[in-house]
Design a protein around this nucleic acid. Structure first.
Lengths: 170, 170
DNA sequence: ATTTTATGTCAGCCTTGTTGACTTTCCAAG
DNA sequence: CTTGGAAAGTCAACAAGGCTGACATAAAAT
């Protein structure tokens, strides 16, 4: 593949020949790759009776321990009712712990339990294995480009959460 | 399981330091970027009362006119019941035409009508606009890397459909 | 003539989105 | 201090779009 995506002079940014066909290929690459990307965790989740929504919650609680429900809502971009359902089952099953805030008792701070951390490990190990192998197959330069394009494809809000995440509103 | 995945020696690509943290970043990049990637078409679809499932069907019918229902099932990876529900509404609404096969009358060959092609245009224009802008922001080299990593991330079956698609079983 | 294949349909279930209504808690203005 | 609104979270109910299973039909293959 690779086709000509660049003009002959290769002056960096400029001279990007972007035919509709090439852009369509890019779209399909995203579609198929995202399927692959989620396939391994999906199998693990399915076996335990969870879905992708549970994975997302677990992932971001792991990333930002003690995060509040509201923070999580902002990251995930779903309604609180939708998140709550997922969170409830995770709490009932003893994977997530919800602690009432000290300063503000309206808030709940979320933490993974040992059992939750264990599942998180299994999921991220599986996902990382695929990503690691894709990175290795493609090489270091390709990885840098991959990240650049993905970042440019995000909405600005999402990009902020992807990059910084700390102290946004607090 | 952590840190250095590739030693500084290695051949060719080499120098890929893959920490868990970097791989986690890659996962989140996929997550956020995919959201951005689907955001624009989603708005258009929503306004017309369709969903992402309709978009996928329209996209692949456009890409491979006269494709059969079975082909589409293989590409989309859903059950026929699920696809049929979507296809039925598209046919009822006059966006897709289903023609009985000449050679094999059991088959239905799918085509976009003028109206269907129009919606396809609107959807892919929106999606391509974002992709074009991401490509331009990232540069030609980054785009090549982006495609390489995505391709490496696919399952082999999906990769085959992404690349070749023509004469697989026929 | 029989079996297999391609397609479509009905019924019902599950996950994960949605909106609406409600409670509890907190804070700030009177 | 009280009170009214904002913020956080919960419950209920609905919709989209996955899924399985059972069946029907027509056409092709054996």
């Amino acid at each position: 593949m690779a086709d000509k995506a660049v003009g002959p002079s290769a002056g960096g940014e400029a001279l990007l020949f972007l035919t509709d066909e090439q852009l369509r290929k890019g779209s399909e690459a995203m579609f198929f790759a995202y399927r692959g990307f989620t396939a391994d965790p999906d199998r693990i989740l399915d076996a335990k009776g969870y879905g992708r929504a549970h994975h997302r919650a677990i992932h971001f609680i792991h990333r930002s321990p003690a995060t509040t429900v509201n923070n999580l809502l902002a990251i995930l971009g779903v309604t609180k009712q939708s998140l709550n359902r997922v969170l409830r089952t995770l709490i009932e099953d003893g994977l997530v712990e919800s602690r009432v805030g000290r300063a503000d008792k309206r808030e709940r701070h979320l933490h993974l339990t040992a059992k939750g951390a264990e599942l998180e490990r299994a999921l991220s190990d599986a996902q990382r294995a695929r990503m690691r192998s894709a990175y290795r197959a493609a090489g270091a330069e390709a990885v840098a480009g991959f990240r650049q394009v993905l970042e440019a494809m995000m909405d600005s809000e999402q990009r902020a959460q992807y990059q910084g995440l700390r102290e946004s509103g607090k």
